[in-house]
Design a binder for these strands. Structure first.
Length: 268
DNA sequence: AACTACCGCAACCGCTATGTT
DNA sequence: GAACATAGCGGTTGCGGTAGT
């Protein structure tokens, strides 16, 4: 007997999510928490595969996600971790709070890979491109599924609790400095003042991001969201954000905000 | 202005890992 | 331990936006 499909293919909608679907999914997760993805579509009134719901939530709707491009420090960390872990994006993502494996994977394929090649570094082996390969190296590079020191890294089991990536002794990572010349005004970073602004109570209150969804109040506690995180849901549930064009919706709660134009000094 | 090519990202697909009965 | 169900992961694809001609 074959394996059952993850969901009933008949009547299952595919393709980009609409704001209405997002709203339903967020409402459901807020009310019931993350469990039984298979039953989520039915219970939430969505004509989607449970898998699709999970992906949508983890890659896009989660409240703790950062948006925007990875900054140079995050990029460096990704490169470093990739050298140790290979294409194990979820493990890499676990070391970058607020970043998803999909996001990192995409960023790797579209930006970092090219950058490394440009610098003369093989993005797979992290060795200089024109170095004469030994047969062993060639094999590692070709298969890309087992880096020499991968097992050691697995056993190391980098501390997970720390949102602070710099806390890992195994990772050569320099914390962002004030003089960092990277364009961090756009990209999300916990060290980023604009991000701090977004998450600050003052900002949230000021924009009247009052959570107005059903069941607002104590029942979200099971999700472990802070009060400010709960507030961030208002962008999804707020009709102002419900637009037909999902593309204009996709930057989520921060999509309407132009970080560059924010007057930091005046606001906080 | 119209067309084309390229880029970046969201989402899907298929597989593996893990949990449950 | 086997069989099945579910969750999670990584590779790939499709589509919209944008730069170039």
């Amino acid at each position: 007997m074959g394996r059952q499909p993850c969901c009933d293919k008949l009547g299952v909608k595919k393709g980009p999510w609409t704001a209405e679907e997002d709203k339903k999914l967020v409402n459901f997760i807020l009310t019931h928490g993350q469990c039984c993805w298979r039953s989520v579509p039915k219970l939430a009134g969505l004509r989607r595969c449970g898998k699709s719901c999970r992906l949508r939530w983890t890659n896009y709707l989660r409240p703790d996600l950062k948006r925007g491009l990875l900054n140079e420090d995050e990029e460096q960390l990704v490169i470093d971790l990739h050298a140790r872990l290979g294409n194990r994006w979820s493990k890499i993502a676990a070391r970058l709070p607020g970043r998803t494996d999909n996001e990192i994977k995409n960023h790797w394929n579209t930006h970092i890979k090219k950058k490394l090649i440009k610098m003369g570094i093989d993005p797979i082996t992290h060795e200089p491109l024109h170095k004469p390969d030994t047969p062993q190296e060639a094999v590692v590079g070709a298969t890309n599924d087992h880096h020499p020191n991968l097992d050691a890294v697995d056993q190391l089991e980098l501390p997970k609790d720390s949102g602070d990536v710099s806390s890992s002794a195994a990772v050569e990572f320099s914390p962002p400095t004030e003089n960092s010349s990277t364009d961090e005004s756009v990209s999300g970073n916990e060290e980023d003042p604009s991000l701090n602004l977004i998450w600050s109570e003052a900002f949230l209150n000021d924009l009247t991001w009052n959570f107005s969804g059903p069941g607002s109040g104590g029942e979200y506690g099971e999700l472990g969201f802070s009060s400010s995180e709960e507030n961030t849901f208002s962008w999804v549930l707020d009709d102002r954000n419900v637009v037909d064009d999902h593309r204009s919706f996709r930057v989520g709660g921060f999509g309407e905000i132009d970080f560059n134009s924010l007057d930091m000094g005046g606001k906080v």
